[in-house]
């Protein structure tokens, strides 16, 4: 009796009669980095579990440690490291990387010989792994400026240089937002649609950050949820002492 009261009326009815509402999925819009899906036949709480899994549990690669050999630019070492960490890294096959894998990415740049500046962009990052590269080429990392000075008639140019080795690692959004494969990831209930009994229509909007294809993010999140449920079933079936 206690367990029954937790279930909603219509769900309890479904269990009794053996009728289940089936999940329907319709892709409304599919862009390069964004997908809109209409989901029906599921409860809001299931959709929310899926949403949270996409945000916090789907792994991706990101720069985690940075060795700075030289940096006399205007940005502090920690500023530079933070900017590098936020650059999305693209991989063709994430499943071939484990949590222990480390990918080294180097960056060397210096300001021009004469007065002037060079902008250092994310495309200048050199990855040791040919399958890992920045998802965007034109993210400005730092501006290196050469200034000309004149001290008692002597002209000299003061330049700036950075020499960096960054270490990328696989992680999940739970640990740090840089490992979050989605940016905006939300759903809303669609109003004014003819409602079938026992179902709401939910409009999902999922925007990736460029590191993983959006479809893969949804699939991986669903897989993670399933694995969690399976683990729960196993634990309950074979309780440990």
């Amino acid at each position: 009796m206690m367990a029954r009261s937790v279930l909603e009326e219509d769900e309890a009815e479904g269990f009794k009669t053996g009728m289940q509402s089936f999940m329907e999925l319709k892709i409304i819009e599919h862009g390069e980095n964004e997908v809109k899906i209409a989901l029906s036949g599921v409860k809001v709480r299931f959709a929310n579990a899926l949403r949270r899994a996409m945000i916090a549990e789907v792994p991706k690669l990101a720069i985690d440690e940075v060795n700075i050999y030289e940096n006399n630019s205007l940005l502090y070492d920690e500023d530079l490291a933070l900017r590098l960490g936020l650059i999305p890294l693209k991989t063709d096959d994430l499943s071939s990387y484990s949590d222990e894998d480390r990918i080294s990415i180097t960056l060397e740049a210096q300001s021009p010989d004469r007065a002037g500046y060079t902008m250092v962009y994310s495309k200048e990052l050199i990855s040791s792994d040919p399958h890992v590269e920045p998802a965007f080429d034109n993210i400005p990392i730092v501006k290196l400026i050469s200034t000309e000075r004149e001290i008692s008639g002597m002209r000299s140019v003061a330049g700036q240089k950075i020499s960096i080795e960054a270490i990328a690692r696989r992680g999940i959004g739970k640990e740090h937002a840089k490992w979050q494969p989605v940016t905006s990831c939300s759903f809303k209930e669609l109003k004014n649609v003819p409602r079938k009994a026992n179902s709401e229509q939910l409009l999902f909007t999922i925007e990736g950050d460029g590191s993983l294809p959006v479809d893969d993010i949804v699939i991986e999140a669903a897989r993670i949820l399933r694995d969690k449920c399976n683990r729960l079933i196993e634990e309950l079936a074979n309780p440990r002492e």
């Binding site: 993210i139 501006k143 905006s184």
Partner: peptide, 19 residues
């Protein structure tokens, strides 16, 4: 330097800053 991502939603915005 323009922040790499939007502070709130995390979208990579710096990529189009120059343009």
């Amino acid at each position: 330097m323009i922040p790499v991502r939007c502070y709130t939603c995390g979208k990579v915005i710096s990529e189009v800053w120059d343009e």
